[in-house]
């Protein structure tokens, strides 16, 4: 395990010398330890595979945070302070609806977008197109092609959480 001493991102320019970048989000595990441990059943896997949280049912015990091997869950320690004008009115009750203090939240693959057939916001925002997103069950999808033709890996494969978040080498010469 590589140890990061300072937690927060501190470089003015990227890529910084000697650094290797691994963006992380919720891995949308097929066998998600976070949902098993939740005492109230406030978090579960949707039929399309997305792990969601019912923010109205969560009691904030944070057992799921202890269970998640990827640091993907975040707790609202204080009062959220997103200004009203920055709130996205296109909401999903299991996705980007405003969370209250005292509940856990996480990445939902932008459920409010992908359920409408759009791409997740991170996918759309990435300037170099490093992110791919799609239906794993569709044999003709781009994501399926990448999984079949590129060298891919998942994080902490030994835990058998079976993430649906893959890393691949996109540069031909290095794959």
């Amino acid at each position: 395990m590589r140890v990061r001493v300072r937690g927060y991102y501190e470089h003015k320019e990227v890529p910084a010398e000697g650094k290797f970048y691994v963006p992380i989000a919720c891995q949308q595990c097929e066998d998600a330890p976070c949902t098993t441990v939740c005492p109230t059943g406030a978090t579960w896997q949707e039929s399309d595979g997305i792990i969601v949280i019912d923010y109205d049912w969560c009691i904030g015990c944070r057992y799921c945070m202890a269970a998640c091997p990827y640091g993907a869950r975040h707790f609202n320690w204080g009062e959220p302070n997103l200004p009203a004008e920055d709130v996205n009115p296109n909401m999903h009750i299991l996705g980007n609806k405003p969370r209250t203090r005292g509940v856990v939240e996480k990445c939902t693959f932008c459920i409010q977008r992908v359920r409408e057939g759009r791409m997740p916001a991170c996918h759309e925002a990435c300037p170099v197109g490093a992110r791919k997103f799609g239906n794993l069950l569709d044999p003709d999808s781009e994501i399926r092609y990448l999984l079949d033709h590129k060298r891919t890996f998942v994080l902490k494969a030994e835990l058998e959480t079976h993430p649906k978040f893959f890393y691949f080498w996109g540069t031909e010469g290095r794959s």
Binding site: G7, G60, R62, A66, R73, H74, F75, W77
Partner: peptide
């Protein structure tokens, strides 16, 4: 004020 009054954070959540 919420649990922000504690020193627990996402890294050490208990």
């Amino acid at each position: 004020h919420g649990l922000i009054t504690s020193h627990m954070r996402d890294q050490v959540s208990w």
